[in-house]
Structures are given as structure tokens and as C-alpha cells.
Simulated assay, not measured.
Amino acid sequence: MIDHIGIRTADFEVAKAFYDKALAPLGASLLMIVPPEYTDGVKVGGYGRDRPVYWLSEGKPASEPKHVAFTAHSRAEVDAFHAAALAAGGKDNGAPGLRPHYHPDYYGAFVIDPDGNNVEAVCHRPEEA
């Protein structure tokens, strides 16, 4: 249903460094930097697995932090995302684990990014045997 989403960041280079590390365990990376002639000189980059779906734009962040959840293919990816995001300077906002109040196989982890957004990785698959 959602094709892509974008957020603003107060410091593009800090956010880029964070997301480069945090999204790597999910198989996502920075796939594109938009040429500055198309953005009036504003830094804009898109992350994804096969095409950009999560966009960072340099500028004043929204006054209210956002919540973004990234799909993980396994619970191990959720664990690796959480560890990588913390190592990249994120703040813990919920260790990896089941959240059965959403559904029995909802396995997620939450961190706060450099701009105060609540970033999550979630796997909806049952635990692998």
C-alpha cells in the first residue's frame, strides 16, 4: 500500500551514518543520492533493498517524532538491526522480543534515531525451528 516515505533530518551526514549501519542487517542500503540540481541543493538520499523506499532529506525535522517500522525477514535480522542501531548511536526504545499484544508472532525491536524518531524492525514470521 505504501510505495515510499520520507523524513527530514537536522543533520544529513549524522542520519546517513546511523541508517547506513542500522539498516545493513536488514539488507537495505543507501541506493541513491538525488543530484543537488534537482533539490535546490538540499541533501536527499533513498534507502532500500532493490529500490529507494525510505528517503532522508536535509532540513528541519517535523515537530513531532515519527514512527517507522522496517520489515525483517527473520528474528535474527531484528536482533542484528537493534544491535547495529545501538552501535551507531541510537537509543534503546524496546529490546528485541515478542509483542503478542499485536499478534502471536510479532517480533520487534525499537530504537530512537538521531532526530528522535522511533525506528523499528519487525518480523511477523513464527520462530524458525
Results as ranks from 00 to 15, higher is better:
residue 98 L to P: 00
residue 91 K to W: 02
residue 64 E to P: 00
residue 59 G to T: 03
residue 53 V to P: 04
residue 29 S to R: 15
residue 51 R to P: 03
residue 122 V to Q: 00
residue 83 A to W: 02
residue 82 H to Q: 11
residue 33 I to R: 12
residue 15 A to D: 04
residue 77 E to M: 09
residue 92 D to A: 15
residue 10 A to L: 10
residue 122 V to P: 01
residue 69 A to Y: 14
residue 5 I to E: 04
residue 83 A to Q: 14
residue 105 D to A: 10
residue 47 Y to R: 05
residue 44 V to P: 01
residue 83 A to M: 10
residue 36 P to I: 03
residue 59 G to S: 07
residue 104 P to S: 12
residue 43 K to V: 01
residue 106 Y to H: 12
residue 103 H to A: 07
residue 106 Y to V: 07
residue 111 V to T: 10
residue 57 S to H: 13
residue 120 E to L: 12
residue 98 L to Q: 08
residue 108 G to Y: 00
residue 5 I to P: 01
residue 9 T to Y: 00
residue 91 K to R: 15
residue 16 K to D: 01
residue 5 I to Q: 11
residue 48 G to N: 15
residue 55 W to D: 00
residue 83 A to L: 08
residue 75 R to S: 09
residue 94 G to W: 05
residue 86 L to D: 02
residue 35 P to K: 12
residue 115 D to T: 01
residue 75 R to W: 06
residue 86 L to R: 07
residue 76 A to T: 13
residue 102 Y to I: 14
residue 121 A to G: 10
residue 27 G to Q: 08
residue 61 P to S: 11
residue 32 M to F: 06
residue 73 H to Q: 12
residue 65 P to L: 14
residue 36 P to N: 08
residue 28 A to M: 14
residue 106 Y to A: 03
residue 48 G to D: 08
residue 41 G to P: 11
residue 14 V to W: 06
residue 101 H to F: 15
residue 5 I to G: 03
residue 114 P to T: 07
residue 34 V to P: 00
residue 100 P to E: 11
residue 61 P to L: 07
residue 88 A to T: 09
residue 78 V to C: 05
residue 53 V to Y: 06
residue 10 A to F: 10
residue 115 D to G: 05
residue 48 G to H: 12
residue 54 Y to D: 00
residue 102 Y to G: 00
residue 97 G to D: 07
residue 7 I to N: 02
residue 5 I to K: 07
residue 31 L to E: 12
residue 29 S to P: 10
residue 93 N to W: 05
residue 106 Y to L: 04
residue 71 T to Y: 12
residue 53 V to M: 14
residue 4 H to Y: 15
residue 49 R to C: 04
residue 31 L to V: 04
residue 23 L to D: 03
residue 78 V to Y: 05
residue 47 Y to C: 00
residue 63 S to I: 08
residue 14 V to H: 06
residue 57 S to V: 02
residue 18 F to H: 01
residue 37 E to V: 06
residue 19 Y to R: 05
residue 16 K to A: 06
residue 38 Y to N: 12
residue 53 V to C: 04
residue 81 F to P: 00
residue 60 K to A: 13
residue 29 S to C: 08
residue 107 Y to W: 10
residue 86 L to F: 06
residue 11 D to G: 02
residue 14 V to F: 01
residue 15 A to L: 05
